[in-house]
Each structure stands twice: as structure tokens, then as C-alpha cells.
Simulated scan of single mutants.
Amino acid sequence: MKFYKYQGTGNDFVMIDDRENRFDDQDLALVSRLCDRKFGIGADGLILIRNHPKYNFEMIYFNADGSQSMCGNGARCAVAFAEFLGIIGEKTHFLAIDGDHEALIKEGLVELKMGNVSGIDQVKTDCFVNTGSPHHIRFVDQIEEYPVVEEGRKIRYDQRYSPGGTNVNFIQPISSDEIFVRTYERGVEDETLSCGTGVTAAAIAFAQDQKAATVKIKTRGGNLSVRFRRNADGTLEDIWLIGPAQQVFAGQIDL
């Protein structure tokens, strides 16, 4: 099987052109094996690009453990991959697990329109935002030294989020329009260098008192930005996740 490897701010993905529907997407053990960093290609997730009668393409996304969710950085990489395959130009309209999305490729960056968000829920002194995937958010000090994996795992498996669990984001403000975000990602069950839906949720939580905002985000894998507009009823629209997506290598693997 031919595959490609893409990364978006350190979030890495195995990409497969599956427009002929040859990949068995019910074989979750195969998905996990391909994402395994010791015995497979190694990635945070696996993405299939398929044809769709109503959209430019459909993105089928799997976490490294075979579970499925929306992935913002994965979607940005899927857009870059679709352009590489000649499926799209600078603009696209595609389908993901949480619905349809628009995206633009401008000056080397992929701008992805995320789904609307219903609002922010308070969880004691923390908060929760669903951006296509669930995200628990906690503001912390000294984020570089913070025990992200230890504390993230506790929250990820908290009874409140049973049975599916949640992703967990830790935020430290840098300035009035910039934050540092570290994420414990369910499905990977570890800290990832970046998480697209996570930084989107973090930006919304950080700027929750603003009607519209553009928030710059620093992650261990690189820099992103999120812009959005908040309605009078607290819902959020015109949410865009912006950042780089790069092909790292291509190869072939025996299944």
C-alpha cells in the first residue's frame, strides 16, 4: 500500500488516497498497527481521502487507537494532501465526521473553517468546549513544567466524561491575544505536540468575553491562530483554524 506522511505543527498523520475504496476501514487493528511508532509507520492518526458525490472529497479520520473523532490539524493536512493529489485548488468544500467544512490554502497556510460551537460550559474552576471533539480546559501557571500527562489522564478518564472520555488542554496566557497550549489527547493517550480542535477550544475559552477575536497560539509543535465571532446568545460562528501543513515523506508498506 502506498502512503504519505503529513504533519501540522507536530501533529502527524498517515495519509492514504482511498478514492478506490480499497482500505478496510473496519480493521481497527490495522489502523493501530500503521500508527504504531515501533511496529508501523508511526502517527497520531490515520486519514483516508475518499470520493463523495456532494463534496470535493470526504475525510475519514482515525485516532491512533482506531477510535474516530474530528481532528482539526488532521483536516488541515487532508486539505493539503487533496491539493497534492490534484483533487482541489486553493479552495475546497469537504466532509468530515462532524459535518461539512470549507478550507483555503493561502501563502503556505491552510485555513480551515470549523463547525459552529454552542458555547462554553463551566466545570468547577475549569471549562468545557466541544469543537467537533470534546475538550476540557484548565488555565495553569508555569505550563512548561506542568505535568500534562499525569493531570490530563486523570481528567480524561473522569466519571463526568464517561464512557467516551475527553481531551484535556492546559493554557497559559502569554499576552492579551496569545496563549501557550499543551494537550493530552484521547485516542493517543499521551501529550501531542499540537491539537487543532484543542487549540480552537482553548482560544474560545481564553477570549470568552469578546464578541470577536483572533488568538495566536503557541504549541510545542509550532504556531497556529484561531479567529471567531460570538453571537448574542453565546453561540460561536465563523471559526477558522489557521496554520501550516506539510508532507514529510511518502512510502510503501506491506499489509
Rank of each mutant, 00 (worst) to 15 (best):
N63H: 13
E58G: 00
F39M: 03
N51T: 09
K54G: 06
I41N: 08
G66L: 13
R50N: 15
N73D: 08
G72I: 13
A43E: 02
C71Y: 05
Y61D: 08
Y61G: 10
L46Q: 07
N73A: 04
F39Q: 04
P53V: 15
G40S: 08
D65N: 02
L46F: 07
M70R: 03
A64E: 05
A64I: 08
S69F: 01
M59G: 09
S67D: 00
G66T: 14
Q68N: 04
P53A: 14
H52A: 07
H52C: 05
Y61F: 15
I47K: 05
H52M: 03
G66H: 12
Q68W: 10
N63D: 15
Y55C: 13
G74T: 07
L46R: 04
N56T: 09
F39R: 04
Y61N: 09
N56G: 12
I47D: 05
A75K: 01
G42N: 10
M59Y: 05
R50A: 10
D44T: 03
Y55L: 03
C71P: 13
K54R: 15
L46E: 13
A75L: 00
A43N: 01
S69I: 04
I60W: 00
R50P: 11
F39S: 00
Q68F: 08
G66W: 13
I49M: 10
S67Y: 00
Q68A: 05
S67T: 14
F57P: 04
Q68C: 12
Q68V: 10
A43G: 03
Y55T: 06
N73F: 02
A75G: 03
A64R: 11
G72P: 07
S67V: 11
I49Q: 03
A75P: 03
Q68P: 06
I49W: 07
G72V: 02
M70I: 02
A64Y: 04
S67K: 08
N51K: 12
I49H: 05
A43H: 01
L48M: 14
I60N: 01
K54E: 15
Y61C: 08
A43C: 05
A64S: 15
A75D: 02
H52T: 12
L48I: 03
Q68H: 08
N63S: 15
S69D: 11
D65T: 11
C71M: 11
N73Y: 02
N51A: 08
E58M: 13
D44K: 09
G66R: 13
F39Y: 04
I47Q: 06
I41T: 09
K54V: 09
A75V: 03
D44G: 06
S67P: 06
